[in-house]
Simulated assay, not measured.
Amino acid sequence: MPLKNSLILLLTATIWGIAFVAQSEGGEAVGPLTFNATRNIIGSLVLIPVILLLNKINPQSNSADFTESDRQPMASSGSNPFSRNKTLIAGGIICGICLCLASNFQQFGIQYTSVGKAGFLTACYIIIVPILGLFMKKKCSPFIWVAVVMALIGLYLLCITDGFSIGKGDFLVLICAFLFSLHILVIDYFSPKTDGVKMSCIQFLVCGILTAIPAIILEHPNLSSFSGAWGATLYAGVMSCGVAYTLQIVGQKNMNPTVASLILSLESCISVLAGWIILGQKLSTREIIGCVVMFGAIVLAQLPQKETASEK
């Protein structure tokens, strides 16, 4: 497994972990639907100049992140740009629908449950991804399954400090975890076939439009409501959406989706560490153990991948 992909996904998890506070504050200030719609539309707009710049740097290619091996089969088959654009649009729309559903279930769930529970339940996609992957013939080694169990234990120690029960908010976030699992698998399918940056731009636009419709009807947004939430909204839009979700698509390319989900689940650890470093919130012994177990799971998950690559 390329170290580059792992580092890209680690950076993604870092941005998401720090953005959790922005997501919570922004949703309370302007409403969950309005906040999600705005951040996704901002994410889409941010990527437009990036796409134009990449096209200017490499005008001969419709895909800035294709490798030569990706292009050769297309060239031999007549290099059908219509087919490639069709795949790009389909991938962007499907990813956008999954992202829209997942992020909105999460945003509403956070209103009815604690941040710790929300973090743990959202990260449960690390067990849902490999289970769903079995139906898509995505096999995992025993080491990865052990890593998944370790990560769940680590997340529990890190996030659940006041007992565990399933309430309304918990149920909504569990649905969110299932939808994020689908999002990861959809990206795994489309990212090797098309331009990750363009697909990311389309997914944000689709998600933003789909969320804006009920936001306008139910929350009646206006500019004055953003007066105290522009910082959180811009961070969530530019960094969490525009940068991080695009890095996720690029980083997941040709990578085992279960291992990718394990690395992305470090978002929960990083959010706690960010609170410790930035806000001065102290970590308990239990939380420190949870972080150590989580990082151990990530290391274990990558060892068999390297061995498999060396055997080929």
Rank of each mutant, 00 (worst) to 15 (best):
S265R: 08
I160L: 11
Q106M: 09
G91W: 14
F171I: 07
K86Q: 15
M294L: 15
K306F: 10
T194C: 14
V238I: 15
T246M: 15
N62W: 12
Q111I: 02
A123R: 07
L53A: 13
P142G: 06
S103K: 00
G31Y: 05
A118F: 01
T113R: 11
A260E: 07
T34N: 06
A274Q: 05
I175Y: 04
Q302E: 12
F135I: 11
S103C: 04
L218M: 14
S225H: 11
I209D: 06
G237E: 10
V243S: 04
S284Y: 05
F66G: 06
G167P: 07
T34M: 02
M1S: 12
S284E: 08
M74E: 15
F135N: 04
S265G: 05
S76K: 15
C95G: 04
L247M: 06
N80T: 07
I128S: 04
V299C: 09
L273I: 14
L3T: 06
I213M: 06
I18L: 12
G290I: 00
E307A: 14
L132D: 01
T194D: 12
M74S: 11
I289N: 09
C176A: 09
F178E: 01
L279P: 00
K253V: 02
C159Y: 01
P32A: 06
A64K: 09
G296H: 12
S271I: 00
M294Q: 13
A102D: 03
T122R: 05
S224C: 03
V186M: 07
F190D: 03
K138Y: 13
A151N: 13
D162P: 04
K168Q: 14
N80W: 14
F66Q: 13
Q203P: 02
T246W: 03
C124F: 06
L157G: 09
D195R: 14
V243D: 01
M136L: 14
S24V: 00
Y125L: 02
L218Q: 13
G167H: 12
V197D: 02
L264I: 02
A309D: 12
K282I: 02
L273G: 10
I175S: 02
M239A: 09
I263P: 00
E287M: 08
S268H: 04
A90H: 12
S61C: 10
A177K: 02
A177T: 00
P142A: 11
N36I: 03
C176D: 12
A123C: 13
S227H: 14
T67I: 00
G275R: 07
W276A: 15
A274P: 03
T113A: 08
T233M: 05
K312C: 13
A13L: 08
A212S: 10
D70A: 09
L52M: 14
V238K: 02
F190E: 10
I18G: 01
V197L: 06
Y156C: 04
K282G: 09
G251F: 01
S261F: 03
E311Q: 15
G169R: 12
S265W: 05
L7A: 05
N40P: 02
G154Y: 07
P192I: 00
Q302W: 02
